[in-house]
């Protein structure tokens, strides 16, 4: 079982990300959960959402405290919230940022596995808005191998209809542009 924690801000679509990832998992015949950090939601405030993806039915109903993967949708959260909290020692941190890796590592005092991509830039170009939730799924798929890239096609088409191709382009670019650093 793989556990993923997503950091974003209210309104940036972290919950949509976990839903799409869960949908892609069941496309592959796997099992999945997606849930927000429980409580009131506030636009703009730091929020978290979570995924579990497993080959077997998932019995666990409690929260995720030691994720395998942490995804940061909003660059401004780095240094503001403790994004590496509980991340497994061999876990992976995937960050949307335009900054060099060293700057991120110094700020977070983090020496583990790190991947970066400028997803906000990609989202602005491909979608016309600086909302990086679908874009970052591409980065997660490339760096984790949780799920196949194609498994996202159907969920994205169903969710976004006529603008699905824009989201797919953004996701594909992040898939190609993300770098382990």
């Amino acid at each position: 079982m793989i556990e993923v924690r997503w950091h974003g801000r209210g309104g940036q679509g972290a919950v949509t990300s976990v839903e799409l990832l869960a949908l892609a998992a069941i496309e592959e015949g796997k099992y999945a959960q997606g849930f927000p950090a429980f409580g009131p939601e506030r636009r703009g405030a730091p929020v978290m959402a979570y995924n579990r993806v497993s080959e077997k039915p998932i019995k666990i109903r409690s929260g995720i405290y030691q994720p395998d993967v942490v995804v940061v949708l909003d660059p401004s959260l780095v240094g503001l919230v403790n994004v590496t909290e509980g991340l497994k020692s061999n876990g992976l941190l995937v960050i949307n940022t335009s900054k060099p890796a060293k700057e991120i590592r110094d700020k977070l005092k983090y020496t583990g596995k790190l991947a970066t991509v400028d997803a906000t830039h990609i989202a602005r170009e491909e979608l016309g808005v600086p909302i990086a939730n679908t874009t970052m799924i591409g980065a997660v798929l490339k760096t984790t191998n949780i799920l196949k890239f194609e498994s996202l096609n159907a969920p994205i088409e169903e969710r976004f209809g006529r603008i699905a191709f824009k989201n797919k382009n953004a996701l594909k670019r992040a898939y190609n542009e993300v770098k382990m650093v």
Binding site: A22, Q33, F35, R61
Partner: peptide, 12 residues
Amino acid sequence: YDGFVLSHTMMP
């Protein structure tokens, strides 16, 4: 059914 734990958690 349990609030949030099921009501707000997406499952197949």
